[in-house]
Each structure stands twice: as C-alpha cells, then as structure tokens.
C-alpha cells in the first residue's frame, strides 16, 4: 500500500576523485588563477616602470666604481631556475606515485622536492643579492625585488604543504584524502615551476631586450 518513490541510487559511486573532478583540485586551480593575475600585474608594472628610466636597470652609482649596467646576476638566477625545475620534476614523480598509492615512492620523491625546494629558497637569497640593488634604491629595484619575493612566498608555501603532508603520510599511511592532497600540491608545484619560466626570463633577460 505504501507509495513508491523513484530515486537515483548513488551509494556505489567512488568515495573520492584524485584529479580535476575533485573540488579541492578546482579550488586550487582558482587560487592559482588569482596568483597568476598577481604575477601578470607585477610583470606589467615592470614594463610600465621601464618607461621612466633612460637605462634599464638604472646605473648603480652607490658602488665604487659605479656600475653603469648593473644587470642581475645571471649565474645564480639560472642555477636557481634549474633547482626549481628539478624540484618540480620530482614532484611530478611524487604525483605519479600518489596515483598508485605507493607510499614509499611518494615519500622518496617527495623528500627530493622538499630538499631541492629548501635549496631554492637559499639560492633565492643569492638572487636578491645578485640584483645589485636594495629594494629601496629605485622603482626598478622595488619591482624586481617584488617579483622575487612573491615567488619566494610560493616556494615557502609549497615546501610547507609538502612537509606537512609527507609527515602525515609517514605517520598514518596514504588514504584517499592525502593521495588527492599530494596530487593537488603537485599541481601547485607545476605552477611554481611553470610561472617562474617567464618571470625568470623577464628579470634576467629583460635588461638585455629592453635595456637601452
């Protein structure tokens, strides 16, 4: 006698998704869109401020003898680019291990990323030094330091996320949630490495392209 009701039974559906079907993945992608916009405007500021200078970078006259074309130190910049890309590559291996729920590989490759990430932070301070300016010397120095600093913050966040996750996985093992978190953090690392390519090019080659 009881009425019937038509239902869609979803109880058999998977309990999680490890890829772009996961809400966290999309949330992360949107946060990266926000940060990309930030960097785009920083880069735009770099080119806009160029118009106010005769030479780019402006001569560093606090040095004796003055440096008339104080380009940023290409060696440390390039070295750090390699380190950042290597860290990103190990995060790629970590990502692949996470799909297979391979705890030991996740921890192995992941620790490479963390170590290289810390190295990148150390190199970043050499990069600041290599600009040959302090941030408050002129507008050129302000914007270059700004780009380097913003990216440094992302390096910090990326390393911390990795550190927390790997410690948790080491203690409690891999579950769906943490496999997904590793994958989402991997996307973050791809972005950290990927966004640095154009920014590196702007900071280190900008002075040669648009210098005079």
């Amino acid at each position: 006698m009881n009425p019937t009701r038509s239902v869609i039974d979803v109880s058999e559906l998977p309990r999680s998704a490890l890829d772009h079907r996961s809400p966290i993945w999309i949330g992360n992608a949107l946060l990266l869109a926000i940060e990309t916009t930030m960097f785009a405007i920083l880069a735009a500021s770099y080119f806009y401020l160029r118009q106010n200078f005769e030479d780019w970078p402006p001569p560093q006259v606090n040095f004796i003898p003055p440096n008339l074309h104080p380009t940023p130190d290409l060696f440390w910049g390039t070295a750090n680019l390699v380190v950042i890309l290597a860290a990103t590559f190990f995060m790629f291996l970590t990502d692949r291990a996470a799909v297979r729920f391979d705890k030991s590989k996740v921890l192995l490759w992941g620790s490479f990323t963390v170590v290289l990430g810390i190295l990148a932070v150390a190199f970043r301070f050499r990069e600041f030094h290599g600009t040959q300016f302090r941030w408050d010397d002129n507008a050129y120095a302000s914007v270059v330091w700004g780009i380097l600093l913003m990216h440094l913050i992302h390096l910090f966040v990326g390393i911390s996320e990795d550190g927390f996750m790997f410690a948790y996985i080491m203690k409690y093992g891999m579950d769906d949630k943490h496999a997904r978190d590793v994958r989402v953090t991997a996307v973050y690392w791809y972005w950290i490495g990927g966004i640095w390519l154009p920014l590196y090019a702007i900071i280190y080659f900008g002075p040669y392209w648009i210098g005079k």
């Binding site: 038509s6 239902v7 869609i8 979803v10 559906l13 309990r15």
Partner: peptide, 28 residues
C-alpha cells in the same frame, strides 16, 4: 527522482560532472 545513498552520518555530498551534472563521486 531524488538522490539516495548519500551517507547521512557524515558530511557527505554528491559531486556531479561539470557540464551535464551527472553523478560523479561522493565527497566528504
């Protein structure tokens, strides 16, 4: 029809696909 099989004892919701909103996975 309504949806059945989403757990009520934890904060589970149904995730659907982006374009056509077909059932995709359950998510806590």
């Amino acid at each position: 029809p309504v949806v059945a099989g989403v757990r009520s004892d934890i904060r589970q919701v149904l995730n659907t696909t982006m374009l056509e909103a077909a059932p995709d996975h359950l998510y806590e």
